[in-house]
Simulated scan of single mutants.
Amino acid sequence: MSEVDDAIASARSSWARISEDRSAPLSIARADTRSRRRTTQAIGKRLTRIAVADGAILVAAVAIGMVVPLGIMGALLVMALLIAATLLFAVWPAETAPTPERLASVDIKALPAQTERWLDAQRPALPAPAVTLVDRIGLRLETLSPQLVAVDDDGEAAQEVRKLIGEQLPAFVKDYARVPPSLRTTPRNGRSPDAELVAGLSLIEQEIADMTTRLAQADLDTLSTRGRFLELKYKDENER
């Protein structure tokens, strides 16, 4: 085995160890970063909507004022509209999560991001261990997303991805949500609904990781081949 093969094997082994470690500090840090990014993006969208709405009101007020004097009552009305628009868009959801029905038909390249948005909306109804897994699934989806750029929307790989994260994952979480809260911690057939949820999400997370690896296989092989070529061409020349 060449040094290039050793390096690739070592990298894959390291990645596998990180993937299998459910409490890896790096994953927790990345999840925290994603959470802060979501919050920042939501605030940014709200501020943008407020600015656009208030700008439109001011432009309309100036246009009307050039034709008809607004007076004190008109100025008060404009101020009231500005306050109302600001309050409305401050509390209005920055972005509505897609429905499971929408996930089943969304373009495959946008599916990981859309599924992640839907999962984020489910967090308040999930137990703490499941929320941790939702964060990890979100990281997996972020990694998977670039791999789907070159995937045929009607191909076998796309169908597998769509089946798992566009259909089975939402259906599984919806099944849990329909269980009455008072029964979610009650064991049934040796396992409570909370435990069933955590076990199922863990399996889904690992399968998304496996899908990402399969989709990246061609790139890994290309890297390995090019590495061998460079090794044969330049290392041998330097040893002459």
Rank of each mutant, 00 (worst) to 15 (best):
R136P: 03
Y234E: 14
D54T: 15
K109R: 14
S23N: 12
P93W: 13
V59N: 09
V161D: 05
R136G: 02
P127M: 09
V179P: 00
V134D: 05
E196S: 02
A42T: 11
A85N: 05
V198R: 00
Y176I: 00
G200Y: 03
R214W: 06
E101C: 07
S23K: 09
I18V: 15
P100S: 08
A51G: 09
A157V: 05
I72H: 09
I165E: 00
A16C: 10
L103W: 00
S2M: 04
Y176P: 04
A51M: 11
L201R: 00
A84V: 11
S105M: 12
V151A: 04
K45E: 10
T99E: 14
G166Y: 05
D175A: 05
E205C: 06
E205G: 01
L232R: 15
A63F: 09
Q147K: 05
V91G: 07
D236W: 06
A97S: 06
E196F: 07
F172Q: 03
R240C: 09
A199W: 07
T115L: 11
I108V: 12
L148W: 02
G65H: 00
A24L: 13
L76E: 07
P180S: 08
E167C: 09
W15S: 15
P69T: 06
I108T: 02
V161M: 03
F172E: 07
G71P: 01
I137P: 04
L81Q: 14
I50Q: 10
L119V: 13
A177I: 11
D6P: 00
T48W: 09
A51S: 15
K45N: 02
A11S: 11
V149Y: 08
I18R: 14
V106N: 02
A75E: 15
V149C: 02
A158I: 01
P181L: 14
E237A: 15
T39L: 13
D175I: 03
P127W: 08
R22P: 10
S35M: 11
R34G: 09
R240T: 13
Q41I: 11
P146A: 01
T115D: 09
A150F: 08
P170M: 06
E101K: 13
N189P: 00
I137E: 04
M73Y: 06
